[in-house]
């Protein structure tokens, strides 16, 4: 432990290329055709410490018994087909350059009750055997989701296990209420469907194991102001004011610049 500060600072660890580099606002490299681009560009990526509600760690796992796919095969397929593995009614617009550190993706979905939701995530970390998405301000939850694959043995049988692990807090008081009344179920359904889709991709029909653990029951009241960025409210207002924007369009000044 006698290494100097200068020596440590000059070393480039082998994980360096796997992490996002920006600490300021999220930037989209391009907007995919058909995507509703709201509540992402210019927003901060937020982790589980910045949310409001109780902190949950949710783990969804599926054993790819009978498949000879390696963890690297699973993660490569998962990155490539991420939008296809999502359940109907939720659209994940992956970055055009693929799932790579620092890239942002748009999500067009709906909240329980049918309210449209436009939000997004940033790729916080990506390597050959895992990748992590971090939510942006206004997303229903503040946190990250890590997708990984490992080889595990059980009863003398070895197989690859695919996993999604969510570490999150509801982002604001409104979402915290929503999470209690259907939000958690909806989220479980998304990841259970996703894991089942990953297994199917490798020809495996298997049960997804879900483990939900409340890590911290206490809400963080100082984060109640996150509601200002609530993407559900903002998306709803955007949809409601669509006729006004349509009428005003002929009178609006054309945008200049790039």
């Amino acid at each position: 432990m006698t290494e100097s500060r200068e020596q440590r600072a000059s070393q480039i660890p082998r994980d360096a290329a796997n992490w996002a580099t920006q600490t300021d606002a999220v930037r989209l490299s391009a907007v995919p055709t058909g995507a509703r681009n709201l509540n992402v560009e210019g927003k901060q990526a937020v982790g589980p410490l910045q949310g409001f509600g109780p902190m949950w760690q949710k783990t969804y796992r599926v054993r790819l018994q009978g498949s000879d796919a390696t963890p690297k095969d699973v993660i490569a397929a998962w990155k490539e087909n991420f939008p296809k593995f999502w359940p109907p009614g939720n659209t994940f617009y992956a970055p055009l350059t693929g799932i790579a550190p620092g890239e942002a993706a748009l999500i067009n979905s709906s909240l329980p009750g049918g309210m449209p939701l436009s939000t997004g995530v940033m790729v916080l970390y990506a390597d050959d055997e895992s990748f992590t998405l971090m939510t942006t301000q206004g997303h229903p939850f503040s946190g990250w989701v890590t997708f990984s694959a490992t080889v595990e043995s059980e009863g003398g049988m070895t197989c690859t296990v695919a996993q999604a692990q969510v570490l999150m807090r509801a982002n604001d008081p409104l979402y915290a209420v929503g999470m209690r009344f259907g939000g958690h179920k909806q989220e479980d359904r998304i990841w259970e469907w996703t894991l089942a889709s990953v297994a199917k991709h490798f020809g495996v029909e298997a049960q997804v194991d879900t483990n939900c653990q409340c890590v911290d029951r206490r809400p963080q009241w100082r984060r109640a102001g996150n509601i200002w960025y609530n993407a559900g409210i903002r998306s709803g207002m955007y949809v409601m004011t669509t006729p006004v924007r349509f009428v005003a369009r002929p009178f609006s000044r054309p945008r200049t610049g790039a």
Binding site: M1, E3, R8, P13, R14, D15, N18, G47, P48, L49, L124, Y125, D127, S130, F131, T132, W144, T146, S148, Q165, L167
Partner: peptide, 15 residues
């Protein structure tokens, strides 16, 4: 000071 490698699961453990 002796950390050589950390991935996002490592950060999750710290949280």
């Amino acid at each position: 000071a002796g950390l050589e490698y950390m991935n996002s699961s490592g950060i999750g453990l710290l949280v």
